[in-house]
């Protein structure tokens, strides 16, 4: 099995991580899990909205455009977390706050006025279609980004 081969490189990576510079720390440790989840949601929201915008735009333009918007936010946060550094951290904080506002706003909107949405978005009903991860993600994201600052300071 080829599984034994990467072990040496893995051990090397472990040693590197202890001397890792602060600029790359955003995507390490718990940040790695966040990067993965944000990456998954970027792909999910982007492919979903692109498909729906092309194949069935007329059915629910508002819902699909909102999904596309959320895909952009997810993509930007993923990029910021991977890139690291203070600037990226601040940009990610703004985007996570925007994401939280979006989830809470659209979630409430779908509850108050379901008629406005002919089809659901990624953030409908606080992300119920996605196991409520969309509402949990920005909160964990903001907590991690706050802690990352105190760690580097």
């Amino acid at each position: 099995m080829s599984e034994t081969a990467p072990k040496t490189t893995a051990a090397g990576a472990a040693q590197e991580s202890t001397v890792r510079d602060p600029a790359t720390r955003l995507g390490a440790g718990p940040g790695r899990l966040l990067v993965t989840l944000y990456g998954v949601f970027t792909v999910a929201a982007a492919s979903r909205s692109i498909y729906q915008l092309i194949a069935q735009y007329d059915r629910a333009p508002l819902a699909y455009l909102l999904s596309a918007g959320s895909a952009l936010v997810y993509g930007f946060i993923t990029f910021s977390l991977v890139r690291g550094g203070e600037g990226a951290r601040r940009a990610a904080i703004v985007c996570c706050a925007l994401e939280l506002l979006g989830v809470v706003g659209i979630g409430t909107w779908t509850l108050v006025d379901p008629a406005a949405f002919a089809d659901s978005t990624v953030w409908s009903y606080y992300g119920m279609d996605y196991l409520f991860i969309p509402v949990a993600l920005p909160i964990t994201g903001l907590m991690w980004l706050r802690r990352a600052r105190t760690a580097t300071a």
């Binding site: 990467p6 490189t9 893995a10 051990a11 990576a13 472990a14 991580s17 390490a28 440790g29 718990p30 940040g31 790695r32 899990l33 990067v35 993965t36 989840l37 998954v40």
Partner: peptide
């Protein structure tokens, strides 16, 4: 994809990443 992520993240968080990928 998550397996490769755990190769460069040799901590508990690498394992958590693979677990998340499997749930997905």
């Amino acid at each position: 994809a998550t397996g490769f992520m755990s190769l460069s993240e040799r901590t508990r968080w690498g394992s958590a990443t693979v677990a998340a990928g499997s749930v997905v």
